[in-house]
């Protein structure tokens, strides 16, 4: 008996002997890649930076994520420190990125650089995490984090609060641009995890009623510098 792989591939090739009709839309439009032909049909991400930032702010508000605009890194540190005080965080885990370290240093509570000496049980006990990100998608209010740029897989998902510190120039208009950028930056060496985070964790599993913080962070803050 042939191995399963050869068997399945043979079944597929056999099955595809008979062609299925192509989806019936105008010929000139089927020549392109789906993402390219779809661009004018998908939700708007803004043609200018200003437009994109407006859309982003609107999307984040609808998602119940909090956007904090600050002029510079010092102000970013201040804003997160205020947050830590008001929420009475006792222990914060952070990602050792250039944009994040100074923010962590300004915290009024103990902060632990989680990716330098990762321990999952310790992370479980943290109130909040602070990470950087790869890019931010205005069109959908999504924040792209990765195991490379956000301190691994668990840091941005396990603690109850997730704070992302990013620069304004990391905002891209749409998902297609974010993906193209991801491919340009990482090429064939993709981080083992890339995640588009769109609002705080949520569920509607009980009577379709929205509850935030199902398993991931209950609160999501985007601190945008510049």
């Amino acid at each position: 008996m042939a191995d399963a792989r050869s068997d399945i591939l043979a079944r597929i090739r056999e099955a595809l002997q008979v062609k299925a009709p192509k989806p019936h839309f105008k010929a000139e439009e089927t020549a392109g890649q789906p993402v390219k032909i779809a661009k004018p049909w998908l939700p708007d991400g803004g043609e200018t930076t200003e437009a994109s930032l407006l859309i982003l702010a609107e999307q984040l508000a609808k998602l119940k994520a909090v956007l904090i605009r600050v002029p510079d890194e010092t102000a970013a540190g201040q804003a997160v420190a205020d947050l830590a005080r008001s929420k009475a965080w006792k222990q914060v885990a952070y990602h050792g990125a250039p944009l994040v370290r100074p923010v962590a240093a300004a915290l009024p509570c103990p902060a632990w650089e989680a990716d330098a000496s990762f321990e999952k049980q310790k992370l479980e006990g943290c109130d909040a995490s602070i990470t950087s990100c790869e890019s931010i998608v205005a069109q959908l209010g999504s924040i792209l984090v990765s195991s490379a740029s956000s301190g691994g897989r668990a840091l941005s998902i396990l603690p109850h609060v997730h704070v992302v510190v990013a620069r304004v120039d990391q905002v891209v208009p749409d998902l297609a641009t974010a993906i193209a950028l991801m491919q340009a930056v990482h090429g064939e060496k993709m981080p083992s995890m890339l995640s588009f985070i769109t609002g705080p964790s949520r569920t509607g599993d009980i009577e379709r009623i929205l509850v935030l913080g199902a398993h991931g962070p209950k609160e999501l803050y985007l601190v945008l510098v510049g």
């Binding site: 939700p43 999307q59 609808k62 998602l63 989680a114 990716d115 330098a116 990762f118 999952k120 959908l140 209010g141 999504s142 195991s147 490379a148 301190g151 691994g152 897989r153 668990a154 840091l155 998902i157 998902l175 993709m190 981080p191 083992s192 995890m193 890339l194 995640s195 588009f196 985070i197 769109t198 609002g199 705080p200 964790s201 949520r202 509607g204 991931g216």
Partner: peptide, 24 residues
């Protein structure tokens, strides 16, 4: 499917933990 712009987490996985990554 759910009336959302995107679901909360759309995650791409490329292999297990890579050298230099802290977890996974």
């Amino acid at each position: 499917g759910a009336g959302q712009p995107m679901t909360c987490y759309n995650t791409l996985y490329a292999g297990p933990r890579k050298p230099g990554e802290c977890d996974g």
